[in-house]
Design a protein around this nucleic acid. Structure first.
Lengths: 216, 216
DNA sequence: TCATTCAGTGCACATTCGTACACTGAGTTC
DNA sequence: GAACTCAGTGTACGAATGTGCACTGAATGA
Protein backbone atom coordinates (compact mmCIF):
# COMPACT_ATOMS: atom_id res chain seq x y z
CA UNK A 1 0.00 0.00 0.00
CA UNK A 2 1.53 3.36 -0.98
CA UNK A 3 1.70 6.16 1.49
CA UNK A 4 -1.57 7.97 1.93
CA UNK A 5 -1.47 11.77 1.81
CA UNK A 6 -2.04 12.02 5.57
CA UNK A 7 -5.80 12.33 5.93
CA UNK A 8 -6.21 14.33 9.15
CA UNK A 9 -3.12 13.76 11.31
CA UNK A 10 -2.63 17.32 12.48
CA UNK A 11 -5.94 19.15 13.06
CA UNK A 12 -4.22 22.49 12.37
CA UNK A 13 -4.56 24.57 15.53
CA UNK A 14 -4.85 27.83 13.56
CA UNK A 15 -6.09 29.84 16.52
CA UNK A 16 -3.69 32.72 17.11
CA UNK A 17 -3.64 32.48 20.92
CA UNK A 18 -3.17 28.75 20.63
CA UNK A 19 -0.20 29.15 18.29
CA UNK A 20 1.35 31.65 20.67
CA UNK A 21 0.90 29.33 23.63
CA UNK A 22 2.42 26.55 21.58
CA UNK A 23 5.52 28.60 20.85
CA UNK A 24 5.74 29.63 24.49
CA UNK A 25 5.69 25.99 25.53
CA UNK A 26 8.32 25.21 22.89
CA UNK A 27 10.55 27.90 24.40
CA UNK A 28 10.08 26.49 27.89
CA UNK A 29 10.77 22.96 26.66
CA UNK A 30 13.84 24.01 24.70
CA UNK A 31 15.27 25.93 27.65
CA UNK A 32 14.71 22.95 29.94
CA UNK A 33 16.40 20.67 27.45
CA UNK A 34 19.33 23.01 26.84
CA UNK A 35 19.95 23.46 30.56
CA UNK A 36 19.74 19.76 31.32
CA UNK A 37 23.49 19.37 31.44
CA UNK A 38 24.78 22.87 32.15
CA UNK A 39 23.68 25.88 34.11
CA UNK A 40 20.62 27.75 32.89
CA UNK A 41 22.59 30.99 33.13
CA UNK A 42 24.94 29.77 30.43
CA UNK A 43 22.10 29.23 27.97
CA UNK A 44 21.75 32.20 25.66
CA UNK A 45 18.60 33.75 24.31
CA UNK A 46 19.78 33.06 20.77
CA UNK A 47 20.37 29.41 21.56
CA UNK A 48 16.82 29.01 22.79
CA UNK A 49 15.45 30.81 19.73
CA UNK A 50 17.57 28.62 17.46
CA UNK A 51 16.31 25.45 19.16
CA UNK A 52 12.69 26.57 18.87
CA UNK A 53 13.11 27.66 15.27
CA UNK A 54 12.27 31.31 15.65
CA UNK A 55 14.33 34.43 15.12
CA UNK A 56 15.98 35.84 18.29
CA UNK A 57 13.84 38.95 18.49
CA UNK A 58 10.65 36.87 18.41
CA UNK A 59 11.65 35.59 21.83
CA UNK A 60 10.56 38.93 23.28
CA UNK A 61 6.95 38.29 22.27
CA UNK A 62 6.89 35.73 25.11
CA UNK A 63 9.44 36.75 27.73
CA UNK A 64 11.08 40.07 28.50
CA UNK A 65 14.42 38.42 29.24
CA UNK A 66 16.12 35.13 29.93
CA UNK A 67 15.74 35.82 33.61
CA UNK A 68 11.98 35.98 33.23
CA UNK A 69 12.12 32.69 31.35
CA UNK A 70 14.05 31.22 34.27
CA UNK A 71 11.42 32.34 36.75
CA UNK A 72 8.66 30.90 34.55
CA UNK A 73 10.58 27.64 34.39
CA UNK A 74 10.95 27.61 38.15
CA UNK A 75 7.23 28.29 38.53
CA UNK A 76 6.38 25.40 36.24
CA UNK A 77 8.75 23.12 38.10
CA UNK A 78 7.23 24.03 41.44
CA UNK A 79 3.74 23.50 40.08
CA UNK A 80 4.80 20.03 38.99
CA UNK A 81 6.42 19.36 42.35
CA UNK A 82 3.26 20.39 44.12
CA UNK A 83 1.09 18.11 41.97
CA UNK A 84 3.49 15.24 42.53
CA UNK A 85 3.21 15.72 46.25
CA UNK A 86 -0.52 16.15 46.20
CA UNK A 87 -0.71 12.71 44.58
CA UNK A 88 1.67 11.31 47.17
CA UNK A 89 -0.52 12.72 49.92
CA UNK A 90 -3.55 10.95 48.52
CA UNK A 91 -1.77 7.65 49.14
CA UNK A 92 -2.31 5.72 52.41
CA UNK A 93 0.38 7.93 53.93
CA UNK A 94 4.00 7.45 54.88
CA UNK A 95 3.17 4.06 56.35
CA UNK A 96 4.59 1.91 53.56
CA UNK A 97 7.88 3.43 52.61
CA UNK A 98 8.47 1.04 49.74
CA UNK A 99 5.35 2.05 47.84
CA UNK A 100 6.10 5.73 48.34
CA UNK A 101 9.60 5.30 46.98
CA UNK A 102 8.32 3.42 43.96
CA UNK A 103 5.88 6.24 43.26
CA UNK A 104 8.67 8.75 43.66
CA UNK A 105 10.78 6.86 41.14
CA UNK A 106 7.97 6.95 38.63
CA UNK A 107 7.53 10.69 39.01
CA UNK A 108 11.25 11.34 38.71
CA UNK A 109 11.52 9.29 35.53
CA UNK A 110 8.41 10.90 34.06
CA UNK A 111 9.68 14.43 34.68
CA UNK A 112 13.39 13.94 34.61
CA UNK A 113 14.21 17.26 32.94
CA UNK A 114 12.14 19.22 35.43
CA UNK A 115 13.74 17.51 38.42
CA UNK A 116 17.14 18.04 36.86
CA UNK A 117 16.38 21.73 36.55
CA UNK A 118 15.30 21.78 40.18
CA UNK A 119 18.49 20.04 41.32
CA UNK A 120 20.67 22.32 39.25
CA UNK A 121 19.10 25.67 40.02
CA UNK A 122 18.23 25.09 43.67
CA UNK A 123 21.63 26.31 44.75
CA UNK A 124 23.29 27.05 41.44
CA UNK A 125 20.99 29.51 39.82
CA UNK A 126 19.75 33.02 40.14
CA UNK A 127 19.10 34.00 43.77
CA UNK A 128 15.44 34.71 43.02
CA UNK A 129 14.95 31.22 41.61
CA UNK A 130 16.81 29.61 44.50
CA UNK A 131 14.67 31.53 46.97
CA UNK A 132 11.47 30.44 45.26
CA UNK A 133 12.53 26.80 45.50
CA UNK A 134 13.49 27.18 49.14
CA UNK A 135 10.12 28.67 50.01
CA UNK A 136 8.37 25.84 48.21
CA UNK A 137 10.34 23.19 50.06
CA UNK A 138 9.68 24.89 53.36
CA UNK A 139 5.97 24.90 52.58
CA UNK A 140 6.13 21.26 51.71
CA UNK A 141 7.86 20.55 55.02
CA UNK A 142 5.16 22.38 56.90
CA UNK A 143 2.42 20.39 55.17
CA UNK A 144 4.17 17.14 55.99
CA UNK A 145 4.45 18.29 59.60
CA UNK A 146 0.68 18.78 59.66
CA UNK A 147 0.24 15.27 58.31
CA UNK A 148 2.57 13.91 60.95
CA UNK A 149 0.67 15.71 63.69
CA UNK A 150 -2.36 13.62 62.84
CA UNK A 151 -0.55 10.38 63.67
CA UNK A 152 -1.71 9.27 67.14
CA UNK A 153 1.79 8.22 68.27
CA UNK A 154 3.06 11.76 67.63
CA UNK A 155 0.23 13.56 69.38
CA UNK A 156 2.48 14.78 72.18
CA UNK A 157 5.02 16.38 69.82
CA UNK A 158 5.35 20.13 69.67
CA UNK A 159 5.32 22.00 66.37
CA UNK A 160 9.05 22.63 66.26
CA UNK A 161 9.94 19.00 66.63
CA UNK A 162 7.35 17.97 64.08
CA UNK A 163 8.86 20.34 61.57
CA UNK A 164 12.32 19.15 62.47
CA UNK A 165 11.34 15.58 61.67
CA UNK A 166 9.41 16.59 58.56
CA UNK A 167 12.41 18.52 57.34
CA UNK A 168 14.61 15.49 57.82
CA UNK A 169 12.21 13.31 55.87
CA UNK A 170 11.85 15.83 53.06
CA UNK A 171 15.54 16.49 52.63
CA UNK A 172 16.33 12.79 52.77
CA UNK A 173 13.79 11.99 50.10
CA UNK A 174 15.02 14.93 48.04
CA UNK A 175 18.48 13.44 48.31
CA UNK A 176 17.08 10.20 46.93
CA UNK A 177 15.70 12.14 43.98
CA UNK A 178 19.11 13.65 43.33
CA UNK A 179 20.73 10.22 43.48
CA UNK A 180 18.12 8.80 41.12
CA UNK A 181 18.94 11.50 38.59
CA UNK A 182 22.58 10.41 38.70
CA UNK A 183 21.99 6.71 37.99
CA UNK A 184 20.80 5.02 34.84
CA UNK A 185 17.13 3.99 34.83
CA UNK A 186 16.38 0.32 35.35
CA UNK A 187 19.89 -0.71 36.36
CA UNK A 188 21.02 -2.24 39.63
CA UNK A 189 22.30 1.11 40.90
CA UNK A 190 18.78 2.47 40.76
CA UNK A 191 17.46 -0.33 42.96
CA UNK A 192 20.29 0.27 45.40
CA UNK A 193 19.38 3.94 45.70
CA UNK A 194 15.74 3.05 46.32
CA UNK A 195 16.58 0.36 48.87
CA UNK A 196 18.86 2.72 50.72
CA UNK A 197 16.26 5.47 50.67
CA UNK A 198 13.62 3.13 52.00
CA UNK A 199 15.87 1.97 54.83
CA UNK A 200 16.71 5.56 55.70
CA UNK A 201 13.03 6.41 55.83
CA UNK A 202 12.40 3.46 58.15
CA UNK A 203 15.38 4.38 60.30
CA UNK A 204 14.11 7.92 60.69
CA UNK A 205 10.70 6.65 61.68
CA UNK A 206 12.28 4.33 64.22
CA UNK A 207 14.05 7.35 65.62
CA UNK A 208 10.77 9.23 65.79
CA UNK A 209 9.19 6.36 67.69
CA UNK A 210 12.01 6.56 70.24
CA UNK A 211 12.02 10.35 70.41
CA UNK A 212 10.99 11.97 73.66
CA UNK A 213 9.24 15.20 72.72
CA UNK A 214 9.55 16.53 76.27
CA UNK A 215 13.31 16.07 76.37
CA UNK A 216 13.96 19.78 75.99
CA UNK B 1 54.66 62.97 62.12
CA UNK B 2 54.51 62.96 58.29
CA UNK B 3 54.08 59.73 56.42
CA UNK B 4 57.25 57.68 56.43
CA UNK B 5 58.30 56.15 53.11
CA UNK B 6 57.19 52.68 54.20
CA UNK B 7 60.28 51.12 55.77
CA UNK B 8 59.86 47.40 55.12
CA UNK B 9 56.12 46.64 54.96
CA UNK B 10 56.27 44.24 52.03
CA UNK B 11 59.41 42.07 52.00
CA UNK B 12 59.20 41.90 48.19
CA UNK B 13 58.80 38.28 47.23
CA UNK B 14 60.87 38.72 44.03
CA UNK B 15 61.26 34.99 43.35
CA UNK B 16 59.82 34.26 39.96
CA UNK B 17 58.12 30.98 40.90
CA UNK B 18 56.75 32.67 43.97
CA UNK B 19 55.26 35.50 41.94
CA UNK B 20 53.68 33.02 39.56
CA UNK B 21 52.17 31.04 42.40
CA UNK B 22 50.86 34.27 43.85
CA UNK B 23 49.10 35.16 40.62
CA UNK B 24 47.71 31.66 40.34
CA UNK B 25 46.24 31.97 43.81
CA UNK B 26 44.84 35.38 42.92
CA UNK B 27 43.11 33.82 39.92
CA UNK B 28 41.63 31.07 42.07
CA UNK B 29 40.50 33.58 44.69
CA UNK B 30 38.99 35.91 42.12
CA UNK B 31 37.12 33.08 40.43
CA UNK B 32 35.74 31.91 43.77
CA UNK B 33 34.65 35.42 44.62
CA UNK B 34 33.09 36.07 41.21
CA UNK B 35 31.14 32.81 41.31
CA UNK B 36 29.89 33.34 44.85
CA UNK B 37 26.50 34.52 43.69
CA UNK B 38 26.15 33.11 40.19
CA UNK B 39 27.17 29.99 38.35
CA UNK B 40 30.85 29.49 37.68
CA UNK B 41 30.04 28.77 34.04
CA UNK B 42 28.78 32.32 33.64
CA UNK B 43 32.08 33.83 34.78
CA UNK B 44 34.20 34.78 31.80
CA UNK B 45 37.93 34.44 31.41
CA UNK B 46 38.23 38.17 30.86
CA UNK B 47 36.31 38.91 34.02
CA UNK B 48 38.71 36.85 36.06
CA UNK B 49 41.70 38.50 34.41
CA UNK B 50 40.19 41.91 35.06
CA UNK B 51 39.62 41.11 38.73
CA UNK B 52 43.17 39.85 39.12
CA UNK B 53 44.67 42.79 37.26
CA UNK B 54 46.28 40.94 34.40
CA UNK B 55 45.66 40.98 30.69
CA UNK B 56 43.33 38.21 29.41
CA UNK B 57 46.00 36.28 27.55
CA UNK B 58 48.17 36.09 30.67
CA UNK B 59 45.50 33.80 32.09
CA UNK B 60 46.81 31.03 29.86
CA UNK B 61 50.15 31.03 31.68
CA UNK B 62 48.26 29.38 34.56
CA UNK B 63 45.28 27.49 33.15
CA UNK B 64 44.53 26.17 29.68
CA UNK B 65 40.86 27.12 29.96
CA UNK B 66 38.15 28.18 32.34
CA UNK B 67 37.14 24.55 32.61
CA UNK B 68 40.58 23.68 33.93
CA UNK B 69 40.25 26.51 36.43
CA UNK B 70 36.95 25.03 37.54
CA UNK B 71 38.51 21.63 38.11
CA UNK B 72 41.37 23.21 40.08
CA UNK B 73 38.82 25.08 42.17
CA UNK B 74 36.93 21.85 42.80
CA UNK B 75 40.18 20.14 43.80
CA UNK B 76 40.99 22.90 46.25
CA UNK B 77 37.50 22.78 47.69
CA UNK B 78 37.71 19.03 48.17
CA UNK B 79 41.10 19.36 49.81
CA UNK B 80 39.60 21.83 52.24
CA UNK B 81 36.61 19.57 52.85
CA UNK B 82 38.92 16.67 53.60
CA UNK B 83 40.98 18.68 56.07
CA UNK B 84 37.83 19.93 57.77
CA UNK B 85 36.66 16.37 58.20
CA UNK B 86 40.02 15.12 59.34
CA UNK B 87 39.84 17.68 62.14
CA UNK B 88 36.29 16.63 62.95
CA UNK B 89 37.46 13.02 63.15
CA UNK B 90 40.10 13.93 65.70
CA UNK B 91 37.30 15.05 68.03
CA UNK B 92 35.85 12.68 70.65
CA UNK B 93 33.59 11.41 67.88
CA UNK B 94 29.93 11.79 67.06
CA UNK B 95 29.01 11.40 70.72
CA UNK B 96 28.28 15.05 71.43
CA UNK B 97 26.33 16.36 68.52
CA UNK B 98 26.24 19.92 69.81
CA UNK B 99 30.02 20.33 69.81
CA UNK B 100 30.29 18.83 66.32
CA UNK B 101 27.70 21.25 64.99
CA UNK B 102 29.48 24.20 66.57
CA UNK B 103 32.73 23.12 64.93
CA UNK B 104 30.92 22.73 61.63
CA UNK B 105 29.57 26.26 61.93
CA UNK B 106 33.06 27.61 62.50
CA UNK B 107 34.41 25.85 59.43
CA UNK B 108 31.53 27.02 57.26
CA UNK B 109 32.00 30.63 58.32
CA UNK B 110 35.77 30.45 57.87
CA UNK B 111 35.49 29.07 54.36
CA UNK B 112 32.18 30.43 53.27
CA UNK B 113 33.19 31.03 49.65
CA UNK B 114 34.52 27.51 49.25
CA UNK B 115 31.38 25.95 50.70
CA UNK B 116 29.28 28.20 48.53
CA UNK B 117 31.17 26.97 45.49
CA UNK B 118 30.59 23.40 46.62
CA UNK B 119 26.88 23.97 47.10
CA UNK B 120 26.55 25.70 43.76
CA UNK B 121 28.59 23.39 41.57
CA UNK B 122 27.66 20.08 43.18
CA UNK B 123 24.66 19.72 40.90
CA UNK B 124 24.83 22.93 38.92
CA UNK B 125 28.21 22.85 37.35
CA UNK B 126 30.19 20.99 34.77
CA UNK B 127 29.54 17.23 34.90
CA UNK B 128 33.22 16.54 35.61
CA UNK B 129 33.17 18.83 38.63
CA UNK B 130 29.90 17.37 39.88
CA UNK B 131 31.29 13.86 39.54
CA UNK B 132 34.42 14.77 41.49
CA UNK B 133 32.32 16.13 44.33
CA UNK B 134 30.10 13.04 44.34
CA UNK B 135 33.10 10.73 44.56
CA UNK B 136 34.49 12.76 47.43
CA UNK B 137 31.23 12.63 49.35
CA UNK B 138 30.95 8.91 48.77
CA UNK B 139 34.46 8.46 50.12
CA UNK B 140 33.57 10.53 53.14
CA UNK B 141 30.50 8.37 53.74
CA UNK B 142 32.62 5.24 53.59
CA UNK B 143 35.05 6.63 56.14
CA UNK B 144 32.24 7.55 58.48
CA UNK B 145 30.87 4.03 58.07
CA UNK B 146 34.24 2.66 59.19
CA UNK B 147 34.12 4.93 62.23
CA UNK B 148 30.61 3.78 63.01
CA UNK B 149 31.66 0.14 62.74
CA UNK B 150 34.00 0.70 65.67
CA UNK B 151 31.12 1.61 67.97
CA UNK B 152 30.35 -1.44 70.15
CA UNK B 153 26.58 -1.04 69.89
CA UNK B 154 26.82 -1.29 66.09
CA UNK B 155 29.07 -4.32 66.01
CA UNK B 156 26.37 -6.55 64.57
CA UNK B 157 25.62 -4.22 61.64
CA UNK B 158 26.53 -5.27 58.11
CA UNK B 159 28.48 -3.00 55.80
CA UNK B 160 25.49 -1.98 53.67
CA UNK B 161 23.47 -0.79 56.62
CA UNK B 162 26.45 1.04 58.08
CA UNK B 163 26.89 2.93 54.83
CA UNK B 164 23.18 3.58 54.66
CA UNK B 165 23.26 5.21 58.09
CA UNK B 166 26.52 7.04 57.35
CA UNK B 167 25.02 8.38 54.15
CA UNK B 168 22.01 9.66 56.03
CA UNK B 169 24.23 11.40 58.57
CA UNK B 170 26.46 12.94 55.91
CA UNK B 171 23.65 14.21 53.72
CA UNK B 172 21.79 15.60 56.73
CA UNK B 173 24.85 17.47 57.93
CA UNK B 174 25.52 18.66 54.41
CA UNK B 175 21.99 20.00 54.36
CA UNK B 176 22.78 21.90 57.55
CA UNK B 177 25.77 23.44 55.80
CA UNK B 178 23.56 24.54 52.91
CA UNK B 179 21.08 26.07 55.33
CA UNK B 180 23.86 27.86 57.18
CA UNK B 181 25.00 29.45 53.94
CA UNK B 182 21.51 30.82 53.45
CA UNK B 183 21.18 32.53 56.83
CA UNK B 184 22.99 35.55 58.21
CA UNK B 185 25.85 34.79 60.63
CA UNK B 186 25.16 35.34 64.32
CA UNK B 187 21.43 35.86 63.98
CA UNK B 188 18.63 33.84 65.53
CA UNK B 189 18.02 31.97 62.28
CA UNK B 190 21.52 30.55 62.48
CA UNK B 191 20.90 29.15 65.94
CA UNK B 192 17.64 27.65 64.74
CA UNK B 193 19.41 25.85 61.92
CA UNK B 194 22.01 24.49 64.33
CA UNK B 195 19.42 23.40 66.88
CA UNK B 196 17.40 21.64 64.22
CA UNK B 197 20.51 19.96 62.84
CA UNK B 198 21.50 18.76 66.26
CA UNK B 199 18.06 17.33 66.93
CA UNK B 200 18.07 15.59 63.57
CA UNK B 201 21.43 14.06 64.36
CA UNK B 202 20.12 12.82 67.70
CA UNK B 203 16.96 11.50 66.11
CA UNK B 204 18.98 9.55 63.56
CA UNK B 205 21.12 8.07 66.29
CA UNK B 206 18.00 7.09 68.21
CA UNK B 207 16.83 5.34 65.08
CA UNK B 208 20.15 3.56 64.80
CA UNK B 209 19.85 2.37 68.39
CA UNK B 210 16.45 0.89 67.58
CA UNK B 211 17.51 -0.57 64.22
CA UNK B 212 17.57 -4.30 63.86
CA UNK B 213 20.42 -5.09 61.49
CA UNK B 214 19.10 -8.61 60.91
CA UNK B 215 15.69 -7.42 59.84
CA UNK B 216 16.42 -8.14 56.21
C1' DT C 1 78.55 38.89 32.02
C1' DC C 2 75.56 37.34 28.80
C1' DA C 3 72.17 34.25 26.80
C1' DT C 4 67.88 32.14 28.13
C1' DT C 5 63.37 31.70 30.18
C1' DC C 6 58.80 33.05 30.70
C1' DA C 7 54.99 35.91 33.27
C1' DG C 8 52.73 39.46 31.63
C1' DT C 9 51.67 43.11 27.65
C1' DG C 10 49.27 44.95 23.55
C1' DC C 11 46.96 44.42 19.39
C1' DA C 12 44.10 42.13 16.31
C1' DC C 13 40.35 39.26 14.72
C1' DA C 14 36.40 36.33 14.17
C1' DT C 15 32.29 35.02 16.95
C1' DT C 16 28.58 35.49 19.67
C1' DC C 17 25.76 38.03 22.13
C1' DG C 18 21.42 41.17 23.38
C1' DT C 19 18.48 44.20 21.41
C1' DA C 20 16.66 48.32 18.50
C1' DC C 21 14.00 49.12 14.42
C1' DA C 22 11.08 48.73 10.46
C1' DC C 23 8.66 45.12 8.14
C1' DT C 24 5.14 41.35 6.75
C1' DG C 25 1.22 38.73 6.55
C1' DA C 26 -2.08 35.68 8.66
C1' DG C 27 -5.76 35.87 12.04
C1' DT C 28 -9.22 38.79 14.45
C1' DT C 29 -12.72 42.33 14.96
C1' DC C 30 -15.91 45.48 13.43
C1' DG D 1 -14.50 43.47 3.26
C1' DA D 2 -11.82 46.93 5.54
C1' DA D 3 -9.13 48.15 9.56
C1' DC D 4 -6.50 46.39 13.14
C1' DT D 5 -3.55 43.29 15.97
C1' DC D 6 0.54 41.06 16.74
C1' DA D 7 3.65 36.65 16.29
C1' DG D 8 7.36 36.22 13.73
C1' DT D 9 11.08 38.16 10.08
C1' DG D 10 15.40 40.48 8.55
C1' DT D 11 18.87 43.71 9.06
C1' DA D 12 21.94 46.10 11.76
C1' DC D 13 24.81 47.66 15.53
C1' DG D 14 27.76 48.03 19.64
C1' DA D 15 29.63 45.36 23.25
C1' DA D 16 31.85 41.41 25.00
C1' DT D 17 34.10 37.23 24.46
C1' DG D 18 38.10 33.57 23.53
C1' DT D 19 42.36 33.28 21.57
C1' DG D 20 46.47 33.81 18.16
C1' DC D 21 50.76 36.33 17.69
C1' DA D 22 54.72 39.22 18.33
C1' DC D 23 56.57 41.74 22.08
C1' DT D 24 59.08 43.21 26.63
C1' DG D 25 61.81 43.09 30.53
C1' DA D 26 63.05 41.20 34.90
C1' DA D 27 64.62 36.91 37.09
C1' DT D 28 67.52 32.90 36.23
C1' DG D 29 71.46 30.05 35.29
C1' DA D 30 75.82 29.16 32.82
Amino acid sequence: MPVAPAPQPAPEPTSRAERKERTRQAILDAALELSSDRSFASVSLREVARAVGIVPTAFYRHFASMEELGVALADDTMRLLRSVLRDARRNPGPSNAQASLAALLGQVRDHELAFRFLARERHGGHPAVARAFTVELRLLTRELAVDLARIPQLAAWNTDDLEMAANLLVTSMFEVVLDLLAVAPGRAAETEVLTRGEKQMRLIMLGMAAWNPLHD
